[in-house]
Amino acid sequence: MTAALARFAGTRIFWPIVLLVVLLVINLIAFPGFFTITIKNGHLFGSLIDILRNGAPTLIIAVGMTLVIATRGIDLSVGAVCAISGAVAAAIILGSPDPGNPGVVAVAVAVSLGISLVLGVWNGFLVAVLGIQPIIATLILMTAGRGIAMLITEGQIITVNSAPFKTLGSGSLFGLPVSVIIAAVIFAFAALITRRSALGLLIESVGINPEASRQAGVRSRGLLFTVYAFCALSAGIAGLILTSNQTAADANNTGLFIELDAILAVVIGGTSLAGGRYSLAGTLVGALVIQTLVTTVYTVGIPPIATMVFKAAVVTAVCLLQSPATNAAFARWRRSLSIRAGKGAAAS
């Protein structure tokens, strides 16, 4: 049992899980009813449900960001893609004579996601074909994207009064928030397609050594197109959820700084920014840590303006715990446990 715990402590996901548990315990101490979940009108309510619902957009983007980072890339444009996606959907819905028509909402969602996909292909083109550094290539769309969203909304905050569209952000299905179900489906799809096929191995190989992968016959260019397109598509979905939850398209604030939260979730989860091996399970834990941290700030009465400071402190702590020095210390601990276990078996 101790040896198994030592092996688990040596994994990169150990400290994020410990941190998540600590944050949950702090919330429970500050608010004894924190773990309480109630059912009203067939819907689940409670602080844990709020964490899942509010953290769903970050998780959705973080899943796509994980695959991009695994290829030695980065996507800083996801927040802007969120704003564009929400603005396009709102413009189409409000431009219709019947905003409450599910068909109109379906068209708006399809067009928004189609545009998001095109934006992802654009990022992939800049990185894979033109060879521009990912941070610069996506910074272009990050800068221009908000302006595009402002042009679509004509610089106004567009209020969307559409019951079918509102379901994306605040609706429920089988008692669970629709946004949580969408996030779960995207996470499961990404895990299935990368871990049950050769795609995950190819992504890791490109991230570890692009030149060796190319010589081995891996089509890295098409792979980069795929991961950037998927990341932008994920951002488009998250943008629809955020806009639906706000019942308004706000080009300035929709998805603002969400790219930082997504990157933090990926890093906290143990995926290296240097590319290569990645962990979708770690990204899930990282996204929960980020949202639980925000909830903790409100629960314990800390001023919300200090949220970014606490996020920085948490990331620093996790990175230090995941550092080579810490890993080496745990490796020595595991070896000492193995030696003791071997001596005990020999003595018996």
Rank of each mutant, 00 (worst) to 15 (best):
Thr38Arg: 04
Thr296Gly: 05
Thr316Ala: 13
Arg7Met: 01
Leu176Gln: 10
Gly64Cys: 13
Thr283Ser: 11
Arg146Lys: 09
Met308Asp: 04
Thr296Ala: 14
Cys319Asn: 10
Arg196Thr: 00
Thr167Asp: 05
Leu176Val: 14
Lys40Ala: 01
Val88Leu: 13
Ser338Pro: 01
Ala347Phe: 13
Leu168Val: 13
Leu48Ser: 09
Ile208Phe: 15
Thr226Asp: 06
Arg72Glu: 13
Ile135Phe: 15
Leu223Ser: 08
Ala108Lys: 10
Ala232Ser: 12
Thr38Asp: 00
Arg335Asn: 02
Ala149Cys: 07
Val25Ile: 14
Gly275Ile: 15
Arg7Ala: 09
Ile339Thr: 11
Val121Trp: 08
Arg219Glu: 06
Arg219Ile: 11
Ala4Lys: 12
Val107Cys: 07
Val266Trp: 04
Glu204Phe: 08
Gly10Glu: 01
Phe330Thr: 00
Leu242Phe: 03
Thr295Ile: 02
Arg335Lys: 12
Ala6Thr: 06
Ile37Ser: 07
Ser116Met: 07
Ala232Phe: 14
Val318Met: 09
Gly55Tyr: 12
Ala110Trp: 11
Phe14Trp: 09
Cys231Pro: 10
Ser197Gly: 06
Ile268Trp: 03
Leu260Arg: 01
Asp98Ala: 11
Val78Phe: 10
Leu201Ala: 13
Ala212Tyr: 15
Ala198Lys: 07
Gly86Trp: 03
Ser162Val: 06
Ser116Leu: 06
Ala229Glu: 07
Leu223Asn: 11
Tyr298Gln: 13
Ile237His: 12
Ile51Gln: 02
Ser172Gly: 05
Gly114Ala: 15
Lys311Ile: 02
Asn253Trp: 08
Thr247Tyr: 04
Val309Thr: 12
Ser179Asn: 05
Ser77Leu: 06
Arg214Pro: 05
His43Thr: 15
Asn41Ala: 13
Leu293Trp: 08
Phe14Asp: 08
Arg196Gln: 05
Phe14Glu: 11
Trp333Glu: 02
Ala191Gln: 01
Pro324Met: 13
Gly64Ala: 11
Phe225Lys: 07
